[in-house]
């Protein structure tokens, strides 16, 4: 009984140890940035639905969602985009190597998104027309970077 116990905990240690050896910082970074884009999409959802007339305009939800979008653009991005996490190097990412080849352009596109979400934050809570007017530039900022730096599905 005792010896089987020792054997079991040895096996367990081996499994955990192997897991630690296999920990993949590139994969972790990709998971983190994909989670970030999920947050973008989740917060822009009600704003798009209001702009399209699918749900009623609610200034409080609009303001809070726009606040979140703007806040997300202020997170530091450096650890989300390590070298070697492009779609030519690893699977399960659509991040094109252009992000690293022209890092300056990538940074400037992210800055464009920050500016568009800041303007949107000013407008979204005012009324529906203001929200609709300021949503376009946010979408354009998303699309500009997807155009340049994201592979087609």
């Amino acid at each position: 009984m005792k010896s089987s116990h020792i054997f079991a905990s040895g096996a367990l240690a081996l499994v955990i140890g192997t897991g630690a050896v296999l920990a993949d910082p590139i994969r972790d970074a990709i998971d983190a940035r994909q989670a970030q884009f999920t947050l973008f999409a989740y917060n822009i959802g009600p704003l798009v639905q209001m702009a399209q007339g699918d749900i009623d305009y609610d200034s409080e939800i609009a303001q809070r969602s726009a606040d979140n979008l703007a806040a997300l653009t202020h997170t530091h991005q450096d650890r989300h985009w390590p070298e070697g996490s492009d779609n030519a190097s690893v699977d399960n990412t659509r991040a094109l190597p252009s992000i690293w080849e022209d890092a300056e352009d990538f940074a400037s596109k992210f800055a464009d998104l920050r500016a568009a979400t800041a303007a949107f934050q000013e407008a979204a809570g005012q009324d529906l027309a203001s929200l609709q007017g300021a949503l376009g530039p946010v979408g354009n900022a998303c699309a500009a970077c997807h155009d340049a730096n994201r592979a087609e599905e």
Partner: peptide, 8 residues
């Protein structure tokens, strides 16, 4: 519908 934005 997933609030992704078209590129390309």
């Amino acid at each position: 519908p997933e609030f992704d934005v078209a590129g390309g």
